[in-house]
Computed example of a mutant assay.
Amino acid sequence: MAKPDNRADNVEHLQQSINNTIKNMEESEAYLDEHADEISPQERETLQSKNERREKSLSGFRNEIEDEAEHQS
């Protein structure tokens, strides 16, 4: 049997995901800044691509928070 849809803490979970994503982006950028001359171009491209995907995820998370706020009103 399916569990009922409990949306009470969705915004909290989404905010935690946003915080974690921002932290990962900042750590990745700091790593790139510190080790730019030590890493391969491929590794640099991989990290930059990850951060681009993280940016898109942040936008999605923020849109979901807006949707949740509308449903809670």
Rank of each mutant, 00 (worst) to 15 (best):
M1G: 15
A2S: 08
A2F: 00
A2R: 07
K3V: 07
K3F: 11
K3H: 05
P4D: 04
P4K: 08
D5Y: 06
N6S: 04
R7F: 12
A8S: 10
A8W: 01
D9W: 09
D9T: 09
D9G: 06
N10T: 05
V11I: 15
E12T: 02
E12D: 05
L14C: 03
L14S: 09
Q15P: 05
Q15T: 14
Q15V: 08
Q15Y: 06
Q16T: 08
S17P: 02
S17I: 04
I18P: 02
I18G: 04
N19H: 09
N19D: 15
N20C: 01
N20S: 04
N20Y: 10
T21Q: 01
I22Y: 00
I22V: 12
N24T: 03
E26R: 09
E26W: 01
E26L: 06
E26M: 12
E27K: 13
E27P: 00
E29L: 04
E29C: 00
E29V: 00
E29I: 12
A30Q: 13
Y31N: 07
L32D: 07
L32Q: 04
D33K: 05
D33M: 13
D33A: 10
E34G: 09
E34W: 03
E34Q: 10
H35D: 07
H35F: 15
A36G: 10
A36S: 05
A36L: 01
D37L: 10
D37V: 12
D37Q: 11
D37G: 05
D37P: 00
E38L: 13
E38S: 14
I39P: 01
I39M: 08
S40T: 15
S40D: 04
S40E: 10
P41R: 05
P41L: 13
Q42I: 11
Q42L: 08
E43H: 14
R44V: 04
R44F: 07
E45D: 09
T46F: 09
L47A: 00
L47P: 02
L47E: 06
L47K: 09
Q48E: 15
Q48M: 06
Q48H: 03
S49V: 01
S49N: 15
N51Q: 12
N51D: 02
N51V: 07
E52H: 05
E52Q: 07
E52L: 09
E52W: 04
E52T: 00
R53V: 00
R54I: 00
R54W: 04
R54H: 12
E55V: 06
E55I: 08
E55T: 14
S57Q: 13
S57T: 15
S57R: 15
L58Q: 03
S59G: 02
G60W: 01
G60M: 02
G60S: 11
R62I: 02
R62V: 01
R62M: 07
R62F: 01
N63F: 06
E64P: 02
I65P: 06
E66C: 03
E66F: 09
D67L: 11
E68P: 02
E68Q: 14
E68V: 07
A69K: 15
A69F: 04
A69S: 11
A69I: 09
E70K: 15
E70A: 08
E70W: 08
H71D: 14
H71N: 15
H71F: 10
Q72P: 03
Q72Y: 06
Q72D: 11
S73F: 15
